[in-house]
Write a protein that binds this DNA or RNA. Structure first.
Length: 269
DNA sequence: CCATGAACCTGGTCGC
DNA sequence: TGCGACCAGGTTCATG
């Protein structure tokens, strides 16, 4: 489900409930959800510590306890939300954590989502690329970095160690915006288009955050709100319909094993 | 370095 | 209705 705007939205939505609170206990229904720690580790090092800060890094939600971090990756269908009462009819609650008289719930139909415990951000920072909504994602950086690579541009945009946070929806949308064919080879793309691509990435991600992200099917935040950026999509899921710019029929193919939508007239290789 | 395919999971949809 | 095939906002690992 979630790319940068959705993860950002979820992080913000749980933050208001959790800052300053301490967790008392954790219940795990699907063992693999704890990727690199155990329930005992949680009880020994996190339980009882107040949450200092909550923020997003790439597609991870980070709960910062000062001495310790809890990181959550939602993968495809993970939902993270706070409730007063656990709904026992839900079939896919991988875990929940108690605080005060409430619960932080992690629900995940496909069970790909994971929790991680880290001492600090070193490990994640090491493997993750540039944040596209930060100053480091500069024209200079993108121009030089994209020239150094010789890769299908869509595949490069999905590479979290290059730029982080972009996923399948926003890759297609940003490429459409900048009129770049998804199979264009990165170091062949003209400077002008690269600059436009940068603008497009920033535009689609930031505008989507304002709308609470894109709900196609599963994604919700704060228990049940849907994201409204789906109304602004130009190509993703629009195969067979007219391009909003030139009216040609939007095509769907596969690039890097992912469904890929583009306008064959606007987006030439 | 880069591309591809499989694996991890469940559920919805489409065609027959 | 039922059944199989295929698809899904992601990541990682193995292989050529």
């Amino acid at each position: 489900m979630p790319e940068l705007p959705e993860v950002e939205t979820v992080a913000r939505s749980i933050k208001v409930h959790l800052i300053g609170k301490s967790f008392s206990s954790i219940v795990v229904n699907w063992d693999k959800v704890l990727h690199n720690f155990t329930i005992n580790d949680f009880n020994d090092t996190i339980s009882g510590l107040p949450v200092k800060e909550i923020y997003r890094r790439a597609k991870y939600i980070i709960l910062d306890f000062g001495q310790q971090l809890l990181a959550v990756h939602l993968r495809m269908t993970g939902k993270l939300y706070v409730v007063k009462k656990i709904d026992r009819t839900k079939k896919h609650i991988s875990l929940y954590i108690s605080f005060d008289d409430k619960y932080l719930v992690f629900e995940d139909v496909r069970k790909f989502g994971r929790f991680y415990m880290f001492k600090n951000m070193e490990y994640l920072n090491e493997k993750l690329g540039v944040e596209p909504l930060e100053n480091e994602f500069s024209e200079k950086w993108l121009l030089s970095s994209i020239k150094k690579r010789k890769r299908q541009i869509k595949s490069l945009l999905l590479d979290q160690s290059f730029i982080c946070g972009i996923g399948n929806i926003y890759a297609d949308e940003a490429l459409w915006y900048s009129k770049i064919h998804p199979l264009s080879v990165s170091n062949d793309i003209p400077v002008k288009k690269i600059l436009k691509l940068r603008k497009g990435i920033i535009k689609v991600l930031s505008e989507s955050i304002k709308k609470g992200g894109t709900t196609i099917r599963d994604y919700t935040y704060d228990f049940s709100y849907v994201g409204n950026y789906a109304l602004n999509l130009n190509v993703f899921g629009k195969e067979g319909t007219g391009c909003p710019r030139c009216s040609s029929v939007i095509i769907k193919t596969k690039v890097a094993q992912r469904g890929t939508h583009y306008c064959p007239k606007c987006q030439k290789k």
